[in-house]
Computed example of a mutant assay.
Amino acid sequence: MTPRVAVAGVHGHGASHVRNVVRLAAEGKAQLVAVADPRPAEDLPAGVEVFGGLDELLASTAVDAVIISTPIQTHVALAEAAMRAGTDVLLEKPPTASLAEFEKLSAVVAETGRACQVGFQAQASKATLTLASMVADGRLGEIRGISAVGKWVRKARYFQRARWAGRRTLDGVAVVDGAVTNPLAHATAAALLLDGSTGVDDVRSVETELFRANPIESDDTSTVRIVTSRGTTILVAVTLCASEHLEPRVIVHGSAGRAELRYTTDTLEIIDGSGTTETTYDRAGLLENLLDHRADPGVPLYVPLAATGGFTQVVDAVRLAEAPAEIPGELIRWEGEGLDRRPIVLDVEKWVDRAADDLALFSELGAPWTHPPEHQNR
């Protein structure tokens, strides 16, 4: 029988999930039977039921899998409701806003026996998995470290799209929506996967340096240094205040070669003694994988909840860190008006690249917005 799928949260990124289920329906692999969203849904196929909330949907409609693409602070309650109703879940990243929430949701997975796949789609890319295999096999030699790099542009409309956008907390509840933990979360999660350090006990320490140029609560320009239980240093250097929007990268620094994963295009570049090679790979679908796993539990999930424990340690460190320090106005150039207005942190690309190359925090490099240095160890 064709799996019955519902989507909770159909606006923003949720709209892409709806389109994906419609595509799978045309291929006979799934049925889109219902959606849940407090705001009216548009352009849905005929026959799809519409509900204001997931509880109402689950009480009224039989479904096999639910995609949850809702605000971060709602993830745990909705995923728990779905699993307790007997459905499997594809949960958007970050799965939870704290380690305590992660542990709670993990307990629900164990209790119900349901599958919970997390939406780190780059981890279903053959490019990512090929590089992870190369690291594990020692093909790049001794690993000096791994860098996760993001130089993105986000305009005012991005932070005004929802009440929770750019917030650390909302109505007393943790949200932790910052550059490190949400828009560029894939880079950190991929770096942990490449090191084989995805579990909650695979992260030894996390240092955070969080800054902001936008008038928001959360970070938009940050470095984070992770040391894994294997002893690997992972340096995350990201900004949403770049002069231009560039493809994010995860870089493996090895004694026998250097590898660069560009996960948004599934491209892997290897530089070693034999020269430079660049290959673009295919990517599997997380929903299809979840449905295959449902049909045959012998098919492993690409991103089970347990494999996001290391990433959640980073989220928790950001949650517990000091509020992001404001970057001084003289170091920012503003462009655009209204919803198109955006800050550009002067020379931020240079400092991001230096952090990635040296596996160093902004303050250790002397970035001008870090005087005095604002970082916290955990």
Rank of each mutant, 00 (worst) to 15 (best):
G178I: 02
V109F: 10
E42N: 08
V203H: 08
P248M: 05
G166S: 04
L57R: 05
A127I: 01
W334Y: 02
R294S: 09
A191Y: 11
V348P: 05
T208P: 06
E101A: 09
T208R: 11
T312A: 10
S218F: 02
E330P: 01
I146Q: 07
V315F: 07
D137T: 04
G52D: 14
T223M: 14
S60C: 03
D357T: 05
I271E: 15
K126Y: 15
L192T: 02
E330N: 04
H75M: 02
G273C: 06
T221F: 07
V109N: 15
I271C: 09
A132G: 08
T267S: 15
P95C: 04
V118Q: 11
L365A: 09
I344M: 14
L331S: 02
G53F: 06
L57D: 11
I332S: 03
Q313I: 00
A15T: 01
E80D: 15
W334D: 03
Y158T: 04
G366E: 13
F51A: 11
L210H: 06
S133A: 01
E269G: 02
L240Y: 05
A115L: 10
P297Y: 12
E27A: 06
C241M: 09
F51R: 04
Y302P: 05
D347Q: 06
L305E: 11
A259S: 09
H11N: 11
A30W: 08
R139I: 05
V149W: 04
V206K: 13
L194D: 08
A162W: 07
G119W: 10
A284E: 15
R225D: 10
Q31N: 15
S147L: 02
V180M: 12
F102R: 10
T112P: 12
V118F: 08
V345G: 08
A136R: 13
S147T: 00
L339V: 06
W351C: 04
V153G: 13
H245Y: 10
Y263W: 14
L184A: 04
A79W: 07
D358Q: 15
L24S: 09
V5T: 05
R230G: 06
A41H: 04
E278T: 03
F362V: 00
L235M: 15
A25M: 11
L32Q: 05
A81E: 10
V238Y: 15
L320T: 00
G119S: 10
G119Q: 14
T223E: 14
R163Y: 06
A321M: 03
R4W: 00
A15F: 05
S255N: 06
D358C: 02
V314F: 14
A6W: 04
H11K: 10
R341S: 06
C116E: 12
A6V: 01
L32P: 03
E260K: 04
R341H: 13
I143C: 07
G28Q: 06
A127Q: 14
